[in-house]
Amino acid sequence: MNRLLRLRPRRWWATDPDVPVLEPPIRAGRWNVSWLLPSVLLASLVVADWTAPEHLRIVTWLGLVPALAAATCGVWTTVGFALGTLVTVGWLEYSLDHRYPVGLSDFLLVVTACVLSVLASALRLRAYHLVRQLEDAAQATRLAVLRPIPSRIGGVETANLYLAAERATKVGGDFFDVQPSPYGPRVLLGDVQGKGTSAVDAAAALLSAFREAAYYEADLAVVAERLESRMRRHNRYMALLGERGERFATAVLVGLPARDTGGLEMVNFGHEAPYAVTPERIWALPEGDGAPLGLTELTGALPPVRRVPFPAEATLLLYTDGVSEARNRANQFLPVEEELGRATDTAPRALVGLIEEAVLRHTGGRLTDDTTLLAVRRDPRPPPGGLALD
């Protein structure tokens, strides 16, 4: 289960240019019925003008028809409604023969409304395609940082989810990865402070350092030290480019031994406490008591490597504050542990789906922060050929 950058509710692989994203047409099942509203308005105004008293002329209101079409339909459909409107005005005048005919100024008003509606439709679609290109560029940027993670890799099963709170180019700094190594799989999840491309750049720097150090370093403390060093070097480099303020990142670094020893190693850089979930119980692992990455100089030391009991059948669930700080209309936080207690299946895919549904239900789909989930469990049936290393 690998879902990245979903923009309410677009999935990261939905790059087909024919798939509407920002302004989906009005549909009834599989049918596009965007033309229906302007058609109903046109028919209603014709009937109203036909049945209205002679002194009450509302035929000029027909200028609203192409205006509505411009908001819901394409350019050529809007052109069709504009021409249809002009024909309808002439037909009504000819058929009704009112004592109060539409004057030249009224007719020019309808013509102007038709022309402006066509121009507005063209500008709307142009803006739509521009925003679409920006959105696709943001997705490409995010995908370049958060590479897809196989559902089975390095002796573990995985599932992940990324829900973006912002649209188009506003991408956040959440990051995660699972790296196989000769010493067992290593897991990293975190959140860079701030938004935008500079936050994504910092996340990319941390992930690149993690992928190398996690594979080559036997000691998880050395991996943590490499991450801290990379964050500091990144901040110094960005300062030379003129960026004000230093970035920092909360993160959880986990190491699962190559052979099951009934536990795991964890370094928590001021991040939310992960959960361990089995069919029998749910418990939180140690919460972050150290400084975030990039700020450990303030404490004078890196967070310690903690060795925590972790059964082979347990699933490790890591998440960002988009989950723990998700609020409903009553400003109440999402009770993550309570939601996990409803799980009937503790597989990674099932837990990620359960929490995703809970977050969207709790917030009503109004995300205020990027939401990231990563679930990992030892693979009970690892593929033949040993660990998958890259």
Rank of each mutant, 00 (worst) to 15 (best):
T77R: 14
E157S: 13
P380E: 09
R132S: 04
R247P: 02
W12F: 05
T346R: 06
R259A: 14
L241D: 10
R147N: 01
D390R: 15
G242S: 07
V171L: 15
E287D: 08
D379R: 04
V111K: 10
G322V: 01
L293S: 05
L83D: 00
V254I: 15
P180K: 11
A43S: 13
D49Q: 09
T169G: 05
A48C: 00
L351T: 03
L227K: 11
A43K: 01
L109K: 05
A350V: 02
L354K: 04
A209R: 11
A113C: 15
R327L: 14
L7N: 02
P53L: 11
V87Q: 05
T299P: 00
V40N: 03
P348L: 03
D219W: 14
L22G: 02
D260G: 02
D136F: 08
G29I: 08
L130R: 12
A209S: 15
L68D: 08
L264K: 04
A70G: 08
R11M: 03
D106R: 11
L220S: 11
I355V: 12
R349E: 15
G364D: 06
G194L: 07
E23C: 01
R124A: 06
P180A: 12
T320I: 06
A122C: 01
T278C: 07
E135L: 15
R381E: 14
V110I: 09
A251Q: 10
L367M: 10
V254C: 09
L220P: 04
E297L: 10
N331Q: 13
E265I: 01
V118T: 10
L220E: 09
L298I: 14
V75E: 12
I58D: 02
Y183K: 00
Q332P: 00
A214H: 10
G288C: 10
V223P: 07
P185L: 06
H98I: 00
D97F: 02
Y162I: 03
S121M: 07
S198P: 00
D370R: 05
S95K: 03
E338D: 13
T112G: 11
R124W: 10
G245L: 12
T169R: 15
A14E: 15
L367F: 07
V131T: 11
Y319D: 01
R124P: 04
G255R: 14
V156S: 04
A70E: 06
Y275S: 03
L298W: 13
V222D: 13
Q179W: 03
G90R: 12
A69G: 08
A43L: 15
G74T: 12
E243G: 00
R126C: 01
G288W: 06
V277L: 11
P20Q: 04
L163C: 02
E225I: 00
E166Y: 09
T78L: 07
R186L: 04
L188A: 05
R142V: 13
W50G: 00
L143N: 08
L302K: 12
L206K: 09
R349P: 00
R126D: 13
W283G: 00
V79Y: 09
D49M: 04
T158S: 10
E313H: 14
A168M: 09
D345Y: 07
D370K: 05
